[in-house]
Structures are given as C-alpha cells and as structure tokens.
Amino acid sequence: MKSSAKASQDDGAFSTYRPQYEIVAEKIVEFINNAGLQPGDRLPTEQKLGEQLGVSRGIVREAIKSLTATGLVAARKGVGIYVAGKPHLVAMPALHLSMTVDPEHIQALFHFRSLQEMLTARLATEQITLTELRDLEKILADNQRYAEAENWELFIESDDAFHRSIAQATHNLFFVETITDVLYLQRWAIKIMTGGAPGSLLQSVEQHRAIFNAIKDGQAEEAAQLVKTHVDTVLTAYRLAVRRRLITDDTTDQRKEP
C-alpha cells in the first residue's frame, strides 16, 4: 500500500495552499500600513483595489469581509471602505491553524465542524441582515455556476465563502475564525488522503441552497440540521474516496509484484 508515500508527496504541495482572498487581505493590510492610513481614512473601491492587486472584484470583496471581521476596516453604504482601527494596533488573527490532522483524527475534525457550523447556522439565522442575505445568495449563485462548469478550484473558493459568510452573519469574530480554520484543516486533510474534492459538486450546491432557504425563512433549527446533513454527506464521500484510493493502490502494488 502506498497511500502514506502519496500523502507525504501531496503534503508538501498542499501545505503551501492558501485561498487567494487571504493573500489579498494581507496585501490590503500592507497598503494601509505603507500609506499611513488612520481610522476614518477611506480605501480605494473594490474595483480599484482589484485592478491594483491584479485580482477580481469578488476576491477583493472576500478579503474585505475577512478584514471587517478583525475590526481593521469597515464598509458603509454611501461612504465606501474605510479604516476602522489603528493598523499598528490591530493584529491579524491567524488565517489558519498551525497544525495538521492525522488520518485517524479526520472523523473527529468533521464532528467538530458539524457542531460548530450547527451553532453558527442557528445564530446566523437570528442575526443575518438583508445585505448579508443578498451577498450569501450571490455566493450561492457562483457556487452553482462553478459546480456546473466542474471548475473545482473556483468551486472550493465559493464553497468556503458560503460557509464563511454564514459565520460572518453571526457578527462574532470567533465563529468566523473557527470556521475558517476548520475549513482549512479539512481541505488539507482531504487533499492529502484523496487528492481532490470527494462527492458530487452539484449535490453540495443543492444542500447549500436548502441551508440558504432555511436561513432566509428564519428557520434556525432547520438550518442547523441541514448543515449537519451537509457535513455528514461530505464525510461519507471522503470515506468512499479514501477506500477507492486504498483499493487502487493495493491492486497496483500486486500487479508490480514478480
């Protein structure tokens, strides 16, 4: 069996992976510091920031959301994006946990994620604003478009954005950071063991839509249960993908034996 060897090879490649919005968020922090901006000072528009950094406006929007959660920047209709805190006093929270997940602990990670996201969904249903609900709907539309196009990388980014936006709707920084960290660790573990994204992308979109509708309708407990079903579905798909990979590796090894 060669799964451990493949895991170590994939580890080096994926350990350097970071969502693009995180990199852009750091560049925006650098811009604020280098420009000497103070609380109340305005930042360029999302469009202009995207042009300066060479990324799409959507990526900039996700970066701004993550920075808003830290209290460093804020966005207000009619005002734009502005510095909300003192850059030299605001420490960026860890964008991902400095730890790895052993294969035998992956189920515990999924269980932890399920509990966290159920709690997050309940609170988000009670706290979400109309603007946040509209933003979540736009993310869901992107998620479906990327799934239909079978664009795995953009689907993963929109998938993370969907779950992170629900966390942001709680208006609690600790939920945002916890969900972001758990998603990163889960992606890392899945990439190591399966080499990709297990399960059906379209099924994932359908489950996202059901969660969105429950939140929109104010059904907190239903949203929580739908999140649990969603996470359980991903875990089941992960187990099947790992099993298929192990069987394939065993078969390959047997064929190579003299």
Rank of each mutant, 00 (worst) to 15 (best):
T70R: 02
S98V: 14
P93W: 01
K138F: 14
H88Y: 12
E137I: 01
G85N: 12
T129Q: 10
A124Y: 03
I106H: 04
S114P: 00
T68C: 09
N143K: 05
A91W: 00
L109T: 07
L130W: 00
A91N: 10
T129G: 08
G80K: 05
T120L: 01
A121V: 02
V73G: 02
A84H: 14
R122V: 12
A69M: 08
E117W: 06
T125S: 15
M99G: 08
F110W: 11
T120K: 03
L115C: 05
K86I: 12
L136D: 01
L133Q: 08
A141E: 10
L130M: 11
I139R: 02
K86E: 13
D142S: 13
M99T: 15
L97K: 13
K65W: 01
A91E: 13
A63Q: 01
E117H: 01
L67A: 02
R76C: 10
N143M: 09
R76M: 13
M118A: 07
E137P: 00
H111S: 15
A91G: 06
K86L: 08
R61S: 13
F110A: 09
E62L: 06
Q116H: 05
D135N: 14
M99N: 07
T120M: 05
G85T: 06
Q127C: 12
A69N: 10
Q116F: 00
V73H: 04
A63E: 00
P93M: 08
K86W: 09
G80S: 14
F110Q: 05
L115Q: 14
D142L: 12
K77D: 06
L119Q: 13
E126W: 03
A141W: 04
T131Q: 12
L67K: 00
I139A: 04
P103W: 10
T120E: 04
I139L: 14
A121L: 03
E132S: 11
L133P: 02
H105P: 04
P93T: 09
N143E: 12
L119D: 13
T131D: 11
A94H: 07
K65P: 00
E137V: 02
D142P: 02
V79T: 13
E104F: 12
V90N: 13
R113Y: 08
L119I: 06
T129Y: 00
Y82S: 14
P103K: 04
A91C: 04
Q107I: 07
L67Y: 07
I139K: 02
V73P: 00
I81W: 01
A74Q: 13
L67G: 03
K65L: 07
L133H: 01
R61L: 05
T100V: 14
Q127D: 09
I106C: 01
A94Q: 11
L133A: 03
T70K: 02
L130N: 11
V90P: 02
T120Y: 02
A124I: 04
T70G: 07
R122A: 05
L72W: 05
T120S: 07
A108R: 10
K86Q: 10
A69Q: 03
R113Q: 13
L123T: 06
A74S: 14
S66I: 11
T120G: 00
L95K: 03
S98Y: 14
E62C: 07
L67V: 09
E104G: 02
K86C: 07
V83C: 06
A94S: 10
D102R: 15
D142Q: 12
A84S: 15
Q116L: 15
I64K: 03
L95I: 10
T120C: 07
L115W: 03
H88G: 09
S66N: 09
I81P: 01
G85Q: 11
